[in-house]
Design a protein around this nucleic acid. Sequence first.
DNA 1: GCTAAAGTTGAGGCGTGCCTCCACATTAGC
DNA 2: GCTAATGTGGAGGCACGCCTCAACTTTAGC
Lengths: 192, 192
Amino acid sequence: MNEKAAEGPRTRVRRPQRADARRNFDALLAAAREAFAEHGTGASLEDVARRAGVGIGTLYRNFPTRQDLFDSVYLDEIDELCNAAGQVADLPPWEALAAWLRRFVDYAATKRAIYEALNRDSEMMRSSRAAMYEAGEPLFERAREAGVVRGDVSFDDVLRMISGITGGGFVDDDQRERVLGMALDGVRARPA
Amino acid sequence: MNEKAAEGPRTRVRRPQRADARRNFDALLAAAREAFAEHGTGASLEDVARRAGVGIGTLYRNFPTRQDLFDSVYLDEIDELCNAAGQVADLPPWEALAAWLRRFVDYAATKRAIYEALNRDSEMMRSSRAAMYEAGEPLFERAREAGVVRGDVSFDDVLRMISGITGGGFVDDDQRERVLGMALDGVRARPA
DNA sequence: GCTAAAGTTGAGGCGTGCCTCCACATTAGC
DNA sequence: GCTAATGTGGAGGCACGCCTCAACTTTAGC
């Protein structure tokens, strides 16, 4: 239902025509995803090119500015998040919300970058944040109306908490799981 | 009771003798605190010197390595946290833990830097992290024994959650307060 | 196969941050 | 005041990331 919103006014960089060029393009996206995940928004573009096995010039041909590159990676993740919202729609209210928030954490390959982005204030960021909200907020509202989510916080509050937690590092996956579980319990309504 | 632990094996950079030099030293510390808070561990040292109104050479005379500077700032904050643990000791178990964790967030002027530090692995980091744990963990244990904290998470889990949240940005102080409250509720034991 | 269009490359100019070093300035102690 | 000890400043060498550009390579299409 919100797939529409996900398609927003995206001004995606266009994928090249030639086969070899397309390979490079995709390699760059993958490399950038990795690099942003590791070093945040400030990752070295020269490093991205190296990871992709491509000259720095090729990177700039495809993504004239750092923002273009970041946007492309980011938009992919937003897409996945929007799709995820559709996929969990059949679950009961709380489970649906929790599952989506877990995806939020998993898909955030741009980890550190994603909450830097939450604050940034560009045309594109605003619109894709809007898309994300349109996907996730209904799940939140449904859970709230069902009385399984506390009434004194907003969807934005929850997202910020979760993305903050995502940004920190963990000893191992088990710990991440425990911490996430604990945070989600904080979102839940307490029995009176 | 844990003031002792707080005094650990600290190898603090020594404060200069001459009055003018001491002024510069203090200005540098203050500037560094600011800069680290804003830009994280990677803040520009030349910027720190500028903020302090001091030549870059002076910075290096007092703090030969970036680590020395960071340590000095960091140790101050650890100190404050350790003291805070003593100050809340009289409160009831849950209130004491919650109050300390709130201080943890407040005092973290090194915001972004503090959880970068949680993962770093140097002699000094280890020992001051230990000091912090010795200060905070008893509060946690006491609360757990009193049955007001859930049993399936560790002190480290809680700290990582809180410091992650601290690292993210908020729209305003009210939001920060709401999110923190929500997270703390996650730490609390649920009535069966 | 040939050729024009599409794409690739990396050297190079620029800026910025790191850190050293030493001529110069200030202070403490007499 | 004088002077030795202490401290200051910032130019300069190095490294690295940014981004451009023009010579070169590869592909698509005939």
